[in-house]
Design a binder for these strands. Structure first.
Lengths: 350, 350
DNA sequence: CTGAAAGCGCTTACAG
DNA sequence: CTGAAAGCGCTTACAG
């Protein structure tokens, strides 16, 4: 009948009473177990288990002036981006964070300015300890804002500005990914490899393009006239690929800047009555969900997102659990991860 | 040279000093402004603005025994699901939460049991006030677990079990979505409408199938032999659609259980030298990113995720900000949202 | 309408 | 190795 809570949550106080020790000792059992005599430690740990005790995060936060929460922006863009990888990254990120005793707080923002406003609000309230950024670009105002205020952060994406002040970042070597693609296609016997890219405004796209260009040059293959560009998408990829396929001397393989473009290219190939893989090889980029749900399976450059997420959390935890606040102490982490090529039927000649 | 913090964060104490009032008055200015004389209120508000003060979330949490954080599980599945809508939902959810003074904490879990373990951990630590669940299914152990412990939560997805105890949920009426699809196709002059579905184990899939079935019956259209099933995917959708298209009397339109299946069906149609839309109409489901990046554009049933997210947060905030804890007070919200049909070229006959 | 006081549940020097 | 004490920054009855 009564509406009293089934069981009052255990506190450090109730655990101390249960174990017959002081609150300090319970705290030590959790935060500095080496300070306790083994038998005492065991007794306290048993009480903790018996009572199902976990220290109140709120109390701990207030006392330690930290939240163990890492902020991450949800971009509208990637919620509506086919073949997006941000979901996989966020998943890996929260897993890695959890392993280190942190959690991820997400917030949505339409523009970079909204993201900065969110940073400001969250930091002011002391609701987050650090941030992870994505989709960096030249003249990124976010990194500058955070750096000036000494907020711990790390970017997934290098600073594309050369004059950018140094800060922590990890990124995937898109250039290298494309070199892998070209090498693979050459191995499959291709000598004319086209590139289906994005408009040149995309810094990520240009990096990948350079990999195709220099890869072909390294193998002494032609590149002149063998590239097209279009906005990301399947239909746009089809149109772009058709352009190359209708050349007098068309390429026999297409290195694509994304999986969506590659899936579009596959359609263009089929439209011309050619077979994907056997007649014209296709390789995508990102190894997104798209790559495995199409037929034939799409070869694609895979980003090691799990490793990136681990490192991302690692860097943040080092800052946060280290000499709290002295971000300036050690020099920034700048790490380019090598991607790998996942070969499926779309690039298999025989 | 010195490493002291650029500016000590403002506290209620510093604001009080700055405005020449007591801490209580500052707190009232924020939490009960009607208790202050207008001129005092204005003065305090100005000090708050001048000092850039926001109450410490940690202190507030400890005092109010609430975190204003809502937990949301990231399923591995949807990070790798093409045409997934969970990203859009999470985006809408965090936007709606922010508007109500809440934030979203995400955590990843592989299985339902891991999700429950995370609930347990988060509640024990008092790190979250409530949860939002997705992908409910018959015999869902999560809802039962939460209900027993009186944890505030709401599910996106109805309880597919009929014997399930009542709890808050919102869902989209898939049945109705399919009826819209059938009505639309009939309007376009189709009299033989096939259904490309998922294996019958999917409760969501069966709900949508029933919409196709009864929709056709309502229009006195044949359904016998006009349905196929396959696991979600583009390639699987192609195979399933080919089955129907190779019938002696093939359907002239395909109602598909998802966008991925629909995109696959589009390919099957093209393979047979037919034109999507003009010859064979295709409609997908979810209006995922896929629908707009293919050509022709894919007609699709759109789920009102933004409205669902608003309602989801609304329900939770009502519980949380109301008579804290008395979940049992009012009767549970059970709301089925009507979807809408977005018509694109894939179902346009002329 | 405003002020002094208690207390939320921890952690961490500081004595013993 | 253990215990008593201070204090993190709020909110909220409770007097005045």
């Amino acid at each position: 009948m009564s509406s009293q809570k089934p069981s009052q949550r255990a506190t450090i106080e109730s655990v101390a009473r249960h174990a017959g020790v002081s609150r300090q000792t319970v705290s030590n059992a959790l935060n500095a177990p080496e300070k306790l005599r083994p038998d005492t430690l065991e007794r306290v740990l048993k009480s903790i288990a018996d009572l199902g005790y976990s220290p109140s995060q709120a109390a701990r936060n207030l006392r330690t002036q930290a939240t163990r929460l890492i902020g991450f922006r949800l971009a509208h863009a990637w919620a509506s981006d086919v073949g997006a990888i941000a979901g996989r990254f966020l998943d890996a990120l929260s897993g890695a964070a959890r392993d280190r005793g942190y959690d991820i707080l997400v917030f949505s923002a339409a523009e970079d300015d909204d993201e900065i406003a969110a940073y400001d609000d969250l930091m002011r309230r002391g609701a987050t300890d650090a941030f992870v950024l994505m989709q960096t670009h030249g003249g990124d105002s976010r990194t500058e804002w955070l750096r000036k205020r000494g907020v711990p952060f790390i970017a997934f994406g290098r600073p594309w500005d050369r004059r950018q002040t140094a800060h922590n970042w990890v990124d995937v070597d898109g250039y290298r990914g494309m070199r892998l693609t070209v090498d693979h296609l050459v191995e499959q016997g291709h000598r004319r490899i086209g590139f289906v890219g994005w408009p040149s405004a995309s810094e990520v796209g240009e990096d990948r393009r350079r990999g195709w260009l220099e890869g072909c040059q390294a193998h002494r293959l032609p590149t002149q006239g063998l590239e097209t560009r279009a906005a990301n998408g399947i239909a746009t990829g089809t149109l772009a690929a058709e352009e190359l396929l209708s050349l007098r001397r068309p390429p026999t393989a297409l290195a694509c800047v994304s999986d969506a473009m590659a899936v579009g290219a596959m359609r263009a190939i089929e439209h011309r009555g050619l077979r994907v893989g056997t007649d014209v090889g296709v390789v995508g980029f990102d190894d997104s969900p798209l790559a495995t749900v199409v037929a034939p399976g799409l070869s694609s450059v895979r980003q090691p997102l799990e490793a990136l997420a681990e490192k991302t959390i690692d860097v943040l935890v080092t800052i946060l659990d280290g000499s709290a606040g002295s971000t300036a102490g050690s020099k920034p982490v700048k790490l380019l991860f090598p991607p790998s090529l996942i070969v499926r039927e779309s690039s298999f000649r025989i």
